[in-house]
């Protein structure tokens, strides 16, 4: 697979790999995808007092595009409000990384990951 330099850089030096405390009420966690499909992203956000995303971490099982998409997403959501983070569309990820069409689903998965993590955070706040 021919990947852009941006994908290769994110693959080689991914920022924000790791985990946040799932029990923390300020943390939203999502796990999307399935091992049988070849892609699983675990995505976590920590929301600060100001309502902005203070930290984001990921772990990904998948190809270079999946790793790069999730790494990029952790980068992009930092400092954003939840509403702003929800606005990030998979097409922007695809375009930024110049993903080949066959890999577009990886960016869709990354978009889903952030949406689900926000959902998880919101459900914790309601309780």
């Amino acid at each position: 697979m021919k990947y852009s330099k941006k994908v290769m850089d994110l693959y080689a030096n991914p920022q924000n790999v790791g985990s946040l405390d799932e029990e923390d009420v300020d943390v939203g966690t999502s796990v999307v995808g399935a091992p049988s499909c070849g892609d699983v992203i675990k995505f976590q956000i920590k929301v600060g007092k100001d309502g902005k995303i203070a930290d984001a971490k990921f772990k990904t099982f998948g190809c270079g595009a999946a790793i790069a998409s999730s790494a990029l997403m952790t980068d992009w959501v930092r400092g954003k409000t939840l509403d702003q983070a929800k606005e990030i569309k998979n097409q922007e990820v695809t375009e930024y990384l110049s993903l080949p069409p066959v890999k577009a689903h990886c960016s869709v998965l990354a978009e889903k990951a952030i949406a689900k993590a926000i959902e998880n955070y919101m459900s914790k706040r309601k309780r």
Binding site: M1, M8, Y11, A12, G38, D39, F61, G62, C63, G64
Partner: peptide, 13 residues
Amino acid sequence: RGIEGEGIMLGMR
């Protein structure tokens, strides 16, 4: 187990 084949190949282009 636990990782994806293409990911390995990318690590040694």
